[in-house]
C-alpha cells in the first residue's frame, strides 16, 4: 500500500466514524426523547438515573461540543482543498 492510498484509507475511516457518531447521537437522542421513562426522571431518580444521565449528555453534546466539532471538521476539510501556491513550498 502506497503512502497516498494509506492516507485515503485512513481519511475514509475517519469520516465514516464521524458520520456514524453523528447518526448514533441523533438516533439515541431521538429514542430517549421519545421514551416515556425519560420524562419522569427526577421524580424517580433511583429508577432512571442512568437514562437521565445519558439523555443529558446527549442533550448537551448536541448543543455545544458537537456543532463546534462539526465546524472544526468542515474547516479542516475546506482548508485541505486550498491549493498551496506559496513559492517557498513549490
Amino acid at each position: 500500500m502506497t503512502v497516498e492510498s494509506r492516507k485515503t484509507y485512513w481519511t475514509l475511516i475517519d469520516r465514516t466514524l464521524f458520520v456514524l457518531m453523528l447518526v448514533a447521537y441523533i438516533y439515541l437522542g431521538h429514542r430517549l426523547a421519545q421514551s416515556n421513562d425519560a420524562t419522569r426522571l427526577l421524580g424517580r431518580p433511583r429508577i432512571d438515573f442512568y437514562l437521565s444521565l445519558a439523555y443529558l449528555l446527549i442533550h448537551f453534546s448536541l448543543i455545544i461540543p458537537l456543532p463546534v466539532f462539526v465546524v472544526y471538521r468542515l474547516t479542516v476539510f475546506c482548508c485541505r482543498r486550498i491549493p498551496d501556491t506559496d513559492p517557498a513550498s513549490s
Binding site: 448543543i63 463546534v68 465546524v71 486550498i82 498551496d84 501556491t85 506559496d86 513550498s89
Partner: peptide
C-alpha cells in the same frame, strides 16, 4: 516547511470553531 498558507489554515482551524462557540449553541 513553514508557509503562509499553512499559517492561515492553522489559524482558520483554530478561530472558526472558537467563533462558532459564540453563536452556534
Amino acid at each position: 516547511p513553514f508557509t503562509t498558507q499553512r499559517l492561515v489554515r492553522n489559524l482558520c482551524c483554530f478561530l472558526f470553531p472558537l467563533l462558532s462557540l459564540f453563536f452556534l449553541p
